[in-house]
Write a protein that binds this DNA or RNA. Structure first.
Lengths: 410, 410
DNA sequence: CGTACTTTGTTTAGTAGCGGCACAAACTCA
DNA sequence: TGAGTTTGTGCCGCTACTAAACAAAGTACG
């Protein structure tokens, strides 16, 4: 076989622009085999094979030539595609009122290692972010994993394009703190490879649920969640977060859901924020919130342990009605094809799903859009996984340039 | 010249996937010259030249080798790119409470011919749509233009994917009328070439303004407008209409803007619909609406002729405050980078722009997003032009297959 | 008025990434 | 064991580009 030198190319010169979409399909679990990958990409088997081979060569996925049971189907069994669990990871960081958490997240949204940390709430963002980045750097050293980048989930709206935290009310941080810049600087200082990103925690939770959780397959996904205080929202359209032109979209906390309701710090009354958050639940239920654990935890415990207590029952129903009103307003404006609830709202849905669905359907204008499925979040640490998604995104968009070959800007 | 046969190909085999984006740039006026086209497409001059040549060969654009003044610039003057005004057209149709209108619209959103028509409001959609399609067919015969397809602007939400009119309240049509199907059938019956599309009029107005009017260049464009009765909204994201999963997004008419306001047919009180439409304006101004001309026309005339009348002044201010509250709510949820107002809302903006902007900024949560520019519609017949955009879309997406070469589904 | 410079358009020669096709491989079914 | 079915691979060629050199058409400036 007088093979010409060109033969050395046949495998690695194939598949470039289809590389990103293919990786995303494996990442989100929508391409378990090469045959499915071929169909999903809309390419030929030859191309899909070459793309899979190149992704394997990059150390991102594995192609199992497994003899695994192709139960009940005819023909040659497909090789299985899976994320390479020994591959690179993204560093994910989260800060909230109670402390912080760092984790390493591989492709597929699997948490490889995690390091919770508690700090006394500090008014200095640089100190907290430095601590969480250091925890992440320690995880990277311990595991020896390659890092593709870092992502931070912040409990505040993040203004675009500056990356400043607009309302970190419950962190005692100064409004307008340049969190993105501080985080990126700390990541660089810790010697962590790759770019650094920052986003709002509810936005990132929605992104994670869309790719790996209850939102998988939705085209227009609305996510609403409580933290310890207040309510946040997020919208994923066609697989991408809609953050609005200034990063301030889906600030749903101040929708009016009770015209005669409690006054809100925004100047209005009866906002979703003050009517459906954990503090509201405890107050309506007639409990004095204690200072020992977080309000969210207290509300959750109360709802789980004594759901039939009259006060708890009344609080549940009132909050469900208020939340339903807010969701109906959002449905009329956004018309999502799925809604996902997190935090206390998830518990309220769990407590009486029929009531919530009925309120939303009743207050939505057109019956059809009121019939939107409302589901609970399903992922653990979804904000953390979402933060990792930010860091993975460049790799999903263009694996070759993101992983160092063909440097984008030399 | 012993030229090989292959030489005959050098011109028409070039430029395929860049063809659509290039046409869209010329269509929206963002590529006045080949040099700009080169930069906008991010391709080489060779490719841009070949693409422009092919679009010219398709009869869609013209390349002027004009000696026209390249005032003040060095270097070789660029050839000018322009839409071919003798090229094909789209048939645009609009129906509203007062009658209908048909038009032929060329690339660039220019109305080539128009035929207004008045029919007594008929409860039979097939009759009205048949009349407007016939008027369009007559225009096509008169002008002898080639037709790329037809689009209909309906004054109602259009449910996806069925294409039924959900709330044609002011047309006396049955709710749930299959307008898309009826329109498509009439278009086929009239022997008009190309596919037929149907959309909501405010949505289509927003699309037209985004491509050819006050919304040009906006990434997230919010459009709010009154017709004769009621209020509609639309959102254009990244150049595409956001219609939601069931076509029901941006049904903003029932946002609460006055908790103690007028009762609305939706069961609530103080909806944007009943608080800021032309009837509300006339009522607050203390005028009895007459039956002779449309409510919108009466309100417009009143506002223009006697803006300093105390009743008119009070009505203007009250409606501006209500509208501002509704817009602020939308800004908090959608965070658009531009807002465009149509119908009576356009007149209200014109009457006191500062007041409206102040209310929106004041009721928006974060100062920055309250500073969103609010502009009046600038296009005549923007719904009609938007309807034509629907019909042009397949050509913009893939000129070759849409214009008959390479039939998509043989 | 001619020369240098700037910018635009064209020609020619590649090349990356895919499709098409034939064939090989691996299984099920009868 | 062989036919049928589905999956993976090697090879060829096409399409839509890029790269680079060249040509053209103007301005700037002596």
């Amino acid at each position: 076989m007088n093979g010409k030198a060109t033969t050395t190319r046949t495998r690695l010169d194939r598949g470039r622009s289809a590389l990103g979409p293919a990786l995303e399909l494996v990442h989100t679990g929508r391409a378990p085999t090469r045959a499915v990958l071929t169909a999903e990409l809309g390419v030929t088997r030859a191309t899909a094979g070459a793309v899979a081979a190149e992704l394997e060569a990059l150390g991102l996925i594995r192609v199992d030539s497994n003899p695994g049971a192709a139960a009940g189907s005819q023909g040659r069994p497909s090789h299985r595609l899976a994320v390479d669990e020994k591959g690179p990871v993204a560093l994910a960081a989260q800060v909230h009122a109670d402390g912080f958490r760092a984790a390493l997240v591989g492709l597929g949204g699997t948490i490889v290692a995690t390091a919770p940390g508690c700090v006394t709430v500090s008014a200095d963002p640089a100190q907290v972010l430095g601590a969480v980045v250091d925890a992440g750097a320690a995880l990277l050293r311990e595991t020896g994993r390659r890092c593709v980048g870092a992502g931070l989930a912040a409990p505040s709206a993040v203004a675009e394009p500056e990356g400043t935290a607009l309302n970190p009310l419950h962190l005692a941080w100064p409004a307008g703190a340049p969190v993105r810049e501080i985080f990126a600087e700390r990541v660089r200082a810790a010697g962590i490879e790759g770019p650094a990103f920052t986003g709002n925690d509810v936005n990132l939770a929605a992104l994670a649920e869309h790719r790996h959780g209850a939102g998988r397959g939705a085209r227009d996904l609305l996510c609403v969640a409580t933290g310890h205080r207040g309510v946040g929202g997020a919208l994923v359209l066609d697989g991408r977060l809609h953050t609005g032109s200034a990063g301030l979209a889906l600030e749903v906390g101040h929708l009016t859901v009770n015209p005669e309701g409690r006054p809100c710090h925004c100047g209005s009354r009866g906002c979703l924020d003050v009517e459906t958050d954990p503090l509201a639940f405890l107050t309506v239920a007639g409990r004095d919130p204690g200072p020992e654990v977080s309000l969210l935890q207290q509300a959750r415990d109360l709802l789980r342990t004594s759901p039939d207590d009259p006060g708890v029952r009344a609080a549940t129903e009132e909050l469900i009605d208020r939340l339903g009103l807010g969701l109906a307003g959002l449905v009329n404006i956004l018309n999502p094809d799925r809604i996902i609830l997190g935090g206390l709202h998830r518990e309220l849905l769990h407590a009486d799903p029929e009531r919530l669905r009925a309120v939303v359907a009743d207050r939505s204008l057109w019956g059809r859009s009121g019939g939107v499925p409302i589901l609970p979040c399903t992922l653990d640490h979804n904000s953390l996984v979402g933060a990792a998604e930010l860091a993975w995104q460049p790799v999903l968009d263009d694996p070759l340039s993101a992983l160092g070959r063909e440097p984008a800007t030399p």
